[in-house]
């Protein structure tokens, strides 16, 4: 999550810069070439070898029926090549289709529930408050914890005899007790609650940061003209918060599509298979632990194209203004 976060910022900051290097004497051209190779070489090798190559390999493997931990030579064996059969199988598999559905359910639930909640809370908290720094720290704590460790904590809390049910009991709300993570009919929503707990603080902090960029004078002017608090938020603050909201939504969507750690750790495999499988957990389950790297690779490729499609569509629809030229136009 943190990693995907950055692209928006520096890109907008990267204005046109003077082209460096013209003033050096021609004789150093050879030396410059050596410097370039030595300096960029390591990064380029790592990047091509461990990012690009595996992705290409995934596309290749997805066309084969492969045994676990196979050797490269086996690709040439007869009957290994199966064309698009792995893809066919994926889309015919009810588990995988449900996994796609789960990913999108979490995606839309995040946008429709976490988004307004975070904006609302940020608008309320965007004023001089006593203990504001402490509050900001506390809100951010769930985001800082590893997804796995936060997931384990919630798994313990949500056991049938865990803290949550006990608390409901002591509040006289015993009838609300559930087997939160083991009941397939509610496990996905329990999971969504944990994700909301984990990532709402991040959204609130992001929105509060965005609100710092909204000039106070506008709200003051509107207030003088007789606008109510709500009118000011609705017509001035929220529209000006637009870029922050759109970037948050983008990060949230990509996160929802790649969701793995939390599901893998909190939900038992049997329940996961019935109710909370995501594309990534299905991929790891099939590709690694069920020993079908070819099939798993096909899932990876599908996951890639779905993420790419969502990112491109969203960029076209919403992010265009904010990221103008960030990735597409590059350095200049």
């Amino acid at each position: 999550m943190t990693a995907t976060l950055q692209p928006a910022g520096p890109a907008t900051a990267a204005g046109p810069a003077p082209t460096p290097g013209r003033r050096r004497p021609r004789s150093s051209a050879a030396r410059q070439r050596i410097e370039i190779v030595l300096l960029v070489g390591p990064a380029l090798i790592l990047f091509l070898g461990f990012v690009i190559l595996p992705v290409i390999l995934a596309a290749v493997y997805s066309l084969y029926n492969l045994p676990p931990a196979f050797r490269w030579e086996q690709l040439a064996e007869p009957d290994r090549f199966v064309g698009l059969a792995n893809y066919q199988r994926a889309f015919d598999s009810p588990e995988f289709v449900r996994a796609i559905g789960n990913n999108f359910l979490i995606l839309f639930a995040s946008l429709l529930i976490q988004g307004p909640l975070a904006i609302g809370i940020a608008l309320l908290l965007n004023r001089p408050l006593r203990g504001r720094t402490a509050l900001r720290l506390l809100i951010f704590v769930p985001y800082v914890l590893a997804e796995v460790i936060a997931g384990l904590a919630w798994k313990l809390l949500l056991q049938p005899e865990g803290g949550v049910n006990a608390m409901l009991e002591s509040l006289g709300l015993g009838f609300l007790q559930q087997n939160w993570l083991a009941d397939p009919s509610i496990a996905l929503w329990t999971l969504f609650w944990i994700l909301t707990w984990k990532y709402l603080g991040f959204a609130i902090i992001l929105m509060l940061a965005g609100l710092q960029g909204v000039p106070e004078e506008l709200a003051e002017a509107a207030a003088i003209d007789g606008a109510s608090w709500w009118q000011i938020q609705r017509h001035i603050t929220i529209p000006l918060l637009g870029p922050t909201i759109r970037i948050w939504a983008f990060l949230s969507m990509i996160g929802a599509l790649q969701l793995f750690d939390m599901v893998w750790v909190t939900v038992a495999p049997t329940v996961r298979g019935m109710a909370t499988e995501t594309m990534a957990t299905y991929m790891v389950q099939q590709g690694q632990f069920a020993g079908q790297p070819g099939y798993g690779s096909a899932i990876a490729v599908i996951l890639f194209f779905i993420s790419l499609a969502v990112a491109l569509i969203y960029q076209r629809l919403a992010l265009r203004r904010d990221l103008a030229g960030a990735v597409t136009r590059g350095v200049r």
């Binding site: 690009i52 595996p54 992705v55 493997y61 991929m283 790891v284 990876a300 890639f304 990735v327």
Partner: peptide, 11 residues
């Protein structure tokens, strides 16, 4: 940025 770890993990 378009190639998340999840996609590359198996290969």
């Amino acid at each position: 940025l378009m190639f998340p770890l999840t996609v590359a993990a198996l290969p």
